[in-house]
Nucleic acid binder design. Sequence first.
DNA 1: AGGATCCTCCTAATCATGTTAGTTAGTCCT
DNA 2: AGGACTAACTAACATGATTAGGAGGATCCT
Lengths: 196, 196
Amino acid sequence: MLVSPSRDRAAERRSATRREILDASWEVAHEKGIASITLKDVADRVGMRPPSLYSHFASKNAIYDAMFGQAWQGCLDALRAATDGVPSDPREAMAVMGRAYFKYAVADQARNQLMNARISADFQPSPEAYAPSLAVWELGRVHLALIGVTAEADLDLYSAVVGGLVDAQLANDPGGNRYARQLDRAIGMLADQFGL
Amino acid sequence: MLVSPSRDRAAERRSATRREILDASWEVAHEKGIASITLKDVADRVGMRPPSLYSHFASKNAIYDAMFGQAWQGCLDALRAATDGVPSDPREAMAVMGRAYFKYAVADQARNQLMNARISADFQPSPEAYAPSLAVWELGRVHLALIGVTAEADLDLYSAVVGGLVDAQLANDPGGNRYARQLDRAIGMLADQFGL
DNA sequence: AGGATCCTCCTAATCATGTTAGTTAGTCCT
DNA sequence: AGGACTAACTAACATGATTAGGAGGATCCT
C-alpha cells in the first residue's frame, strides 16, 4: 500500500522538527561545546520540554549520532574537494583534526563502534598501493597514506579524520571550509618539504 | 615556626590517602575508561564513602587534574628517553597519541586551559630554528617540528601530545613504554621514508 | 591530665540531568 | 462520527556530583 498525501505531510512536519532539534543542538554546541549540551538547552531553544525530544530521538546519544552524520557528510564533501588531484598527508590531517571528535566520542564504546563502522563504509584500506610499511586509505579520489600499520594506528587515523570533520563543523563553518583551507595549506607545505 | 614531627606524620598520612585515591582512580580508568570514572567507584576501592573524597580533593575534576599531572610527568620522561638523538616527526607522535587525551579533557574549557598552561611550561616555541613555515617546539633534547603556524595548529600539537601521554598511561604502562615503542617505530619508518 | 582544636570520615540531603510512564489534545482516515 | 495515531505534556525516577552538619579520635597547649 502506498503512502497517502497527509501521511507525507505528517512525515514532513516530523522531519522538520527533527531538523529544528538538530539545528538547536548545533547552536548549543557552538556556544558551550558538544560535550556540554543538555536536553534542557535544546528543548528550551526549540520550545519544548526535555522529554518531548524523545518523540523525535530515542536518546540524547541519538541526537549526537545525527549530528555526527551531518558533520561527516558535509566534511566528506569538503575533503574530496580540497584534495582533488593533490597528494595529501594524512598525518597532517590528523594534527588538524584531532580535537573535537573526542568531545563527541567520549561517552561510550558503542558510540565509537557505530562511528567506526560508518567511517569504514567510506574509507577502504588498499595496502597494495603503497610500500608494505604504509597503510593506505582511499576516499573517492583521496589517497591517505598512514605511516604505521597496527590496528592502533588505524584507529588513530579514524579518530583523527573524524575529529577534524566535526571540528570544522563546530567552527561555524558548515561547508567545512576551514578544514579545507587548513588541509590545503598543509598539503602545499608537505609537498614543498618532502617533494611529494 | 617550624613544622612539628606529628604534623609531619599527619601530612604523610594525608598524602598517602591522596595517593591511594589516585591509584584507585587509575585502576577504574583502566577498567572503564577515564570518562567513566565515578566517585563511588573510587570510594568503594579506597574503602570510603564518596563525600569523604572531598576531604582530599576539592572536586572530581581535581582528581582528574592530579591524574593528568602524573601522566604528564611520567610520559615527559619517556618522551625524552625515546627520542634521544633521533629526529622525530611530531605529526606521527600526534597520530599515535591523539586518542585518550580528549576523554580526559572533554569536560570543560577551564580544564583545557589549565592543561595548556601546564604544557606551555614544558614546551617552548622556537621558530627561528627552522624554516618560517614550520613551528618548532623544543623539549629538552627533543625537537618537534609542526607543519602549520596558526594558533589552532599549536593547540592541536598540545592536544595530541598530551593525548598520547595519557594514553600510554592508560595502557597499563606506567613508564610510558608503549608510547616509547610506538614513537620509536614511527621514527624509524619516517627516517626510512623521508631520509630524515 | 584535661580541655581546646583539628582532621577525617560519616550520614543525610540537595541539585542537575537523562530517562520512563502515563496522559491528553489534536489530526487523519474511513 | 469514531477509531487510530502522533506529538506534546506532567510527574516521577535513577544516577552521580556536591554540600551541610556532626561524631570521634588524634594532637596540641597549658
